[in-house]
């Protein structure tokens, strides 16, 4: 079969070219890295058993609520996001959901030494201290606070909430109306709109001063970076982008997967439709090709 031989040659040549410009070229451009393990192995496990009740007191005594709100426990934010960002660079997180997304060992280590856990020693030092002061209580206090934060956190957190808690104070997500100062409301008039935009602009300016760069909007990251990259990046930003201002935020594996799932829902909303329509279109052309073949055989039979 001469035609099959020609087809085979074309497939081999196209295959080699494809391999060269896609998998091979990309392996050369993006050096291999180990996939995320979420073990945070560089951090030591601190005191084991914590008491949530003691933690509730400890969190008050240590002044955490001087900066952080815990809305689910009716502890309000001391400042609005824009003023907070003017003071600290970024709005300190509400602690209601922290226990649901951040790894417990990481959380204890973070409270004890934020810069080390964040891996941001290149950004923060004695001259430019990290806005959250180091914790001087005992390891047992730490364990209690972590136990408390875990006890008040919801057992199941939605992908959207996971994203907002973990990423939402630095990253906009305009394809789902999310801004760094909260969800974009429906505006009643132009004054409300202008007011909101002014607040957002002020917050973003403070954030830029704090980080040295404006964190990107993540709307299309699922297409521009893909699942694996986002997962591994979240686990350890410095590993993939050395010197970045993004902290290691210490998410658990499950929370990271939720964030990625949410980014996919926002950035690739038609994925399910694409996957469900695909087989039908392919089936159509399989039938088309079979009928065309039969027709061709019928016509060409008279020619040879």
């Amino acid at each position: 079969m001469k035609e099959l031989k020609i087809l085979a040659i074309i497939i081999v040549l196209v295959g080699i070219t494809y391999w060269g410009i896609e998998p091979y070229a990309h392996s050369q451009m993006h050096p291999h890295h180990e996939p995320a393990t979420f073990s945070y192995g560089d951090l030591k496990a601190l005191a084991t058993k914590g008491d949530a009740k003691k933690g509730a007191t400890a969190i008050m005594n240590n002044g955490c609520t001087g900066c952080h709100s815990i809305k689910s426990q009716n502890v309000p934010a001391p400042m609005d996001p824009v003023s907070a960002s003017a003071s600290y660079g970024v709005n300190p997180p509400d602690l209601s959901n922290i226990g649901a997304v951040v790894d417990q060992k990481f959380l204890a280590n973070f409270i004890k030494n934020p810069v080390k856990a964040f891996k941001l020693a290149h950004k923060f030092n004695d001259n430019k201290p990290f806005p959250m002061p180091a914790f001087y209580g005992s390891d047992q206090d730490l364990a209690d606070i972590v136990a408390y934060l875990v006890s008040i956190a919801p057992k199941e957190i939605s992908p959207k909430e996971a994203f907002r808690t973990a990423c939402g104070r630095c990253h906009n997500l305009r394809y789902d109306k999310w801004t760094v100062i909260g969800e974009k409301p429906k505006f009643k008039n132009d004054i409300e709109k202008a007011d909101f935009e002014l607040k957002l602009a002020k917050y973003e300016a403070n954030l830029k001063k704090y980080l040295g760069t404006t964190p990107p909007d993540l709307s299309m990251f699922i297409r521009s970076r893909g699942h694996e990259y986002i997962r591994d990046f979240v686990e350890d930003p410095q590993k993939l982008l050395h010197g970045t201002a993004m902290p290691r935020v210490g998410l658990t594996k499950e929370a990271t997967e939720k964030v990625v799932a949410y980014l996919e829902k926002v950035g690739d909303r038609k994925k399910d439709k694409r996957n469900s329509l695909g087989p039908w279109v392919l089936l159509y052309f399989v039938i088309f090709a079979i009928l065309a073949y039969l027709w061709k055989q019928k016509i060409w039979r008279e020619l040879h």
């Binding site: 027709w295 061709k296 060409w300």
Partner: peptide
């Protein structure tokens, strides 16, 4: 064209 349609069908898959 009868032959082309068959080739086209395979290509469209």
């Amino acid at each position: 064209l009868s032959k082309d349609f068959f080739v086209l069908g395979v290509f469209m898959i």
